[in-house]
Design a protein around this nucleic acid. Structure first.
Lengths: 196, 196
DNA sequence: TACAATTGACTGAACGTTCAGTCAGGACCA
DNA sequence: TGGTCCTGACTGAACGTTCAGTCAATTGTA
């Protein structure tokens, strides 16, 4: 296995099918044969390009990190007040969740499956995001922009809130709310709550 | 198979082991043999008391509904203002989540695994809770106690918030926060946000 | 009271199926 | 011709499930 154009292309196709299937049915419920069939190739070819089933998941975790960590880094290092940066984070995270729902579900699975495959790696990725958000919140508290809450608690809640909103597509038979409405709602709830 | 004391006892033991294992590793990752081993019985005995593996999960869903729906009903039909009832809901839900973490994880799994086993039944249970909370929130809006938000959006967020907090035990290496602190935090965040 | 019949509770061994992973070899292109 | 890409056929292990049969206790009968 070396780096030819055709090989690269096949690898991406395999990864794409694995992303879709893992995201929809979950790692355990998807067989290598399922992925091969979705790609219209043989199972052996998957093993030619990837050492085993788990390495497929690992590649997807790397991909998910690439896609989502951008927003975490932007929140931590970006310009603007903490509140502005968190508002941007909410909007960007929800947008990416909309276009990469499978990746997000792969990423957050250990929250409901703490002993699942590669749970350690996945939880580390989540912890990275939470720590980033917590630092932004802590900054906002110090600046007097936020109430003196526990930054970690707030960061976990923010991520939970935004992921809940992303996952709610599953529940809603009608695609009732536009993305913008979700962003506005989460933002308002996180900063101001629903009380009058 | 009829209803003897010994039989009843065995059924409960099987269900207890299944709850613990399904909650920790997930339905797919647990074999019937695993459950049998945990109970120190034969796999055949499980099939003597339950028709198949899925019926075990179904029994656990019924149990989870019994345990958690109490709080939903109390919020919908209970006494006090909408805000008081939601505050009680948060406290009670988190307490039950603390003592029945496995059941809660079984219950919310379809949010990250929308095509998993019995996802339909599970999503229906979740929808029931959300609808109940939404009706309480709508009541609060009508009474002028809450801002005029979308009740469903708010209900989904509330449940997401409270389940995120419950699941955070998984992430936190130290059992940092007491339950009371979690309750206070979620309550404050939901009603007032973190802004100053 | 004694013994036979019946029951519920339970097991060990096996069933067919599906799984992740292997391997020898063919096809295509430089 | 040599290396990359790919396949069909295959394997051992694990899976959910079934089944024939054991055992202790209960019930029916004389």
């Amino acid at each position: 296995m070396q780096d030819t154009h055709a090989g690269q292309q096949t690898r991406e196709r395999i990864l794409g099918c694995a992303e879709e299937l893992f995201g929809r049915k979950g790692y355990d419920a998807v067989s290598v044969a399922d992925i091969a069939q979705a790609c219209d190739i043989s199972t052996a070819l998957i093993y030619y390009h990837y050492t085993d089933k788990e390495s497929l998941l690992r590649a997807l975790i790397d991909l998910a990190s690439e896609v989502f960590d951008v927003h975490t880094r932007a929140a931590v290092e970006g310009e603007g007040t903490p509140r502005e940066r968190i508002e941007r984070f909410i909007a960007e995270w929800l947008e990416t969740a909309g276009s990469h729902g499978s990746l997000l579900r792969i990423l957050v699975r250990p929250l409901t499956d703490p002993e699942g495959p590669l749970a350690g790696e996945l939880l580390a990725r989540i912890a990275y995001t939470i720590e980033g958000l917590a630092s932004v919140i802590a900054e906002g508290i110090e600046a007097g922009e936020f109430a003196p809450v526990d930054p970690r608690l707030a960061a976990e809640s923010l991520l939970g809130l935004v992921n809940t909103r992303a996952a709610a597509d599953v529940l809603n038979v009608p695609p009732r709310d536009s993305r913008d409405e979700s962003v506005r709602f989460v933002t308002h709830l996180f900063f101001s709550g629903i009380a009058r």
